[in-house]
Simulated scan of single mutants.
Amino acid sequence: MSYKKLIILLLVISTSCSTPNQSTEQSPEQESISESKEAPEQSEKVILFFGNSITAGYQLDMDQAFPALIQNRIDSLDLNYKTINAGLSGETSAGGKSRIEWVLRTTPDIFFLELGANDGLRGLPLDETYKNLQDIIDAVKKENPEVKIIIAGMMVPPNLGDDYTSEFQQLFPKLAEAYDATYIPFLLEGVAGDPELNLPDGIHPTPEGHEIVAETVWNYLEGLL
């Protein structure tokens, strides 16, 4: 993907993610139990997806977002896992840190972290972003020391400067190494920049785009199940 497409793409997410979802957006309390109104059975293991508008499935029905598609794949294989979509549009790492304790009322066996892009788009200090993400993971590991972590990488446009862009790109693999986590280099691989796979805003995936995202995630998740 060209830098020009990447700049357009990520500048759009900065504005669109700050706008509340339409009829499909839910409160953090609702979103943290997206797939079902009932809590997972105790015998089921839990995969907790914790992120921003990409995870939340911006302007889509929740069953079209990639966490729900992952659940469909799990069910088709008769695996004993339940996904929970705790995505929230416009979320920053600081926002995620402030709500993680509430989300952890359900203890995850696998924790999928998709935060940081909105920090980068706003030019926030990345040492603070890194610390916030550390605190989120530490809270999860305190709840379940055996939890498996997946970290989804994102990108920022180069207009913030080479140093900032480079530091941002190194943030996610550095975090993954520190916590021995599974690392996805770019969550929107194969989707970003393609108008046929994104909503008119140019950034949030369509249902077809989420299918590709789900396939990307599955390639990294499958080995942890």
Rank of each mutant, 00 (worst) to 15 (best):
2 S>P: 00
3 Y>M: 10
3 Y>I: 13
7 I>H: 10
7 I>F: 08
10 L>M: 13
11 L>K: 15
11 L>A: 08
12 V>C: 06
13 I>P: 03
14 S>C: 11
15 T>G: 08
17 C>F: 02
21 N>V: 06
21 N>D: 15
29 E>F: 09
29 E>Y: 07
30 Q>M: 05
33 I>G: 09
33 I>K: 12
34 S>L: 13
39 A>T: 09
41 E>L: 14
42 Q>C: 03
43 S>M: 02
43 S>C: 03
43 S>E: 12
44 E>N: 09
44 E>Y: 10
47 I>M: 14
48 L>N: 13
48 L>P: 10
49 F>C: 13
52 N>I: 10
55 T>Q: 11
55 T>I: 14
57 G>V: 08
58 Y>H: 08
59 Q>S: 13
60 L>F: 06
61 D>H: 10
65 A>K: 00
65 A>T: 04
65 A>E: 01
67 P>R: 12
67 P>I: 05
69 L>E: 04
69 L>T: 10
69 L>S: 13
70 I>H: 05
72 N>A: 15
74 I>P: 10
81 Y>C: 01
85 N>C: 15
86 A>S: 15
88 L>A: 08
88 L>C: 12
92 T>R: 03
98 S>R: 12
99 R>I: 09
100 I>P: 01
102 W>Y: 14
104 L>N: 07
106 T>P: 13
106 T>A: 14
107 T>L: 14
108 P>R: 15
109 D>C: 13
109 D>P: 12
111 F>Q: 09
112 F>E: 10
120 G>D: 05
121 L>F: 04
122 R>I: 03
122 R>Q: 09
124 L>E: 02
125 P>G: 02
125 P>C: 00
129 T>S: 11
129 T>P: 03
131 K>I: 00
131 K>R: 07
134 Q>C: 15
135 D>L: 07
136 I>K: 12
137 I>C: 00
137 I>A: 01
138 D>T: 00
139 A>S: 13
140 V>K: 09
142 K>W: 04
143 E>Y: 04
146 E>P: 00
148 K>V: 04
148 K>F: 05
148 K>C: 02
151 I>Y: 07
152 A>E: 11
153 G>S: 11
155 M>E: 07
155 M>V: 12
155 M>D: 07
156 V>Y: 02
161 G>L: 01
165 T>R: 09
167 E>M: 03
169 Q>A: 10
172 F>I: 05
176 A>P: 03
176 A>R: 06
179 Y>R: 01
180 D>T: 12
182 T>R: 00
183 Y>W: 14
184 I>Q: 08
184 I>H: 11
191 V>M: 03
194 D>K: 08
196 E>Q: 14
198 N>V: 15
198 N>W: 06
198 N>T: 15
199 L>D: 02
203 I>Y: 04
204 H>I: 13
207 P>K: 13
207 P>W: 01
210 H>L: 06
211 E>N: 03
212 I>L: 09
212 I>W: 00
213 V>N: 03
214 A>P: 05
214 A>W: 00
218 W>S: 14
219 N>H: 12
219 N>D: 14
220 Y>V: 07
221 L>S: 04
221 L>R: 00
222 E>P: 00
222 E>D: 05
223 G>W: 00
223 G>K: 11
225 L>Y: 01
